[in-house]
Design a protein around this nucleic acid. Structure first.
Lengths: 185, 185
DNA sequence: GGTGTTATGGACCAATCAGTCAATAACTGG
DNA sequence: CCAGTTATTGACTGATTGGTCCATAACACC
C-alpha cells in the first residue's frame, strides 16, 4: 500500500505527484486516503521516514553480516549501479531526489535528510573503523571524515545516475572514489 | 531580467515556481512574458542552458588564468563552500537541483545535464593533466576517470549543502575528497 | 438479524494552475 | 504630427490542484 505511494513520489517527485496519481497508485478513494494518512504532505513525510529507516536497517544489517568492513562500504557505493540497464540508477534515491527538490521550501524534509545522512555516516564510520582493524584501510584515515567523503561520493553518483549517465562510466567513477578514499596504505 | 527568472527557478524548483512567481520576479505582464520567451518550459530551458554555458565559461576561464592546474580543481570543489553562513551552499546548483527534480520526466533536462557535465568533466580532465605535468598530482592517475570522480564528489557536496549540512563538515569532506582523489604521489 | 461503528467513494468546493486574447499603450519612421 | 507597427497589459478560460463532506456500504458485536 505505502510502497505504491513511495514508488509514485520516487519517480515523479513530490510536486509532480498529484493526489490523483496517489489514488490511482493505491486504488483508494479520496476520503479513504485522507482518513488513513492525512494530507499529502503527512503521507509523504511518513513514506520518506519509513524509507530512511528501512535503508538504515539494511545498512546496519550489512555491517553485521559482512565478512569484512570494507565490503559494506563497497556495496554502499556500488549498490545501485549493479543493474546493467541503468534503470535503478535512473530512479536515484527517494531521499536524495526529494531533498533536492524540497529542502529549500520544507524545513522538515531538510531536517529529515540531515538526520538520515547522519545515521548513514555513523554506520559508514563504523565500517571504516572495522576495515582499519582488518587491515583493508589505512589506519591514518579519520573514520568520520572518511565516512562523510564516501557519502558525498555516493550522492554524486546518485545525481549522475539520475540524469542517465551510462552505467560503465558510473562504475568507473565508483571504483575511482573507493580507491582514492579508502587507500589500503 | 533572465537572472530574476533564474533565481526563482533556482530557489523554488521548476514545479514550485508558478507563472505568478515569474511575473513578480520579472515585473512583466503575462502576455509580455509569453511573447518574449514562450511558455514556462521554454523559458526554463533557456535559463538553464545559459546557466550551464556561463558555468562552463567560468571554469575554462579559471583554467586559463590559474597558476596551477590543481588550483582549478580545488576551487571547483570548494567554490560554493566558501560562504561561511552556508547560504550559498543551501541554494545548491540550479542544474543539479532541477536535474534531480525533472530528469525522470523531462528527457531534455536530463540530456542537457549530461551535456553540461560532460563539458565540465573535459575541463577538469584538462586541469588534472596539467596538474600532473606540474607535479602536483600523481601521474599514474587516469585524468578522465579522476575528473569524473571529482565531479561526483562535488555533486555530493552540493546535495549535502542543499539539505543544510553545516559548512565545517562540508569543508572537511571537500578536503578529504581532494586529498584522496588527487594524491601527489 | 438488527444495531452501532467504521471505512469507503465520489460529488463537490474554492483556489490555483498554465496559457490566450483583444484592447490599449508605447514606440517607430516618414 | 500622424500612420503603422510593436509591446504591454490584465481580464478571461478551461483544466487541474489539494482538500472537504456526506450518503452509503461494509463490518463487528451482541
Amino acid at each position: 500500500m505505502l510502497s505504491a505511494v513511495r514508488a509514485a513520489f520516487w519517480d515523479k517527485g513530490y510536486a509532480g505527484t498529484s493526489l490523483d496519481d496517489l489514488l490511482t497508485a493505491t486504488g483508494l478513494g479520496k476520503g479513504s486516503l485522507y482518513g488513513a494518512f492525512g494530507d499529502k504532505q503527512s503521507l509523504f513525510l511518513r513514506v520518506l521516514r519509513e524509507y530512511d529507516e528501512a535503508n538504515d536497517r539494511m545498512l546496519r544489517g550489512w555491517l553485521e553480516r559482512a565478512d569484512r568492513g570494507i565490503d559494506v562500504i563497497r556495496d554502499f557505493v556500488t549498490g545501485s549501479l549493479l543493474d546493467p540497464s541503468g534503470e535503478q540508477a535512473r530512479r536515484g534515491c527517494l531521499l536524495a531526489n526529494t531533498a533536492m527538490e524540497l529542502s529549500a521550501s520544507a524545513a522538515e524534509v531538510a531536517a529529515e535528510a540531515r538526520r538520515s545522512y547522519a545515521a548513514t555516516t555513523a554506520v559508514l564510520a563504523e565500517a571504516v573503523r572495522r576495515a582499519q582493524r582488518e587491515g583493508d584501510v589505512a589506519s591514518r584515515l579519520d573514520p568520520d571524515v572518511t565516512a562523510r567523503a564516501v557519502l558525498a561520493g555516493q550522492l554524486g553518483l546518485v545525481v549522475l545516475g539520475r540524469i542517465g549517465q551510462d552505467p560503465a562510466a558510473l562504475s568507473a567513477m565508483a571504483e575511482a572514489l573507493l580507491a582514492g578514499l579508502l587507500p589500503s596504505s
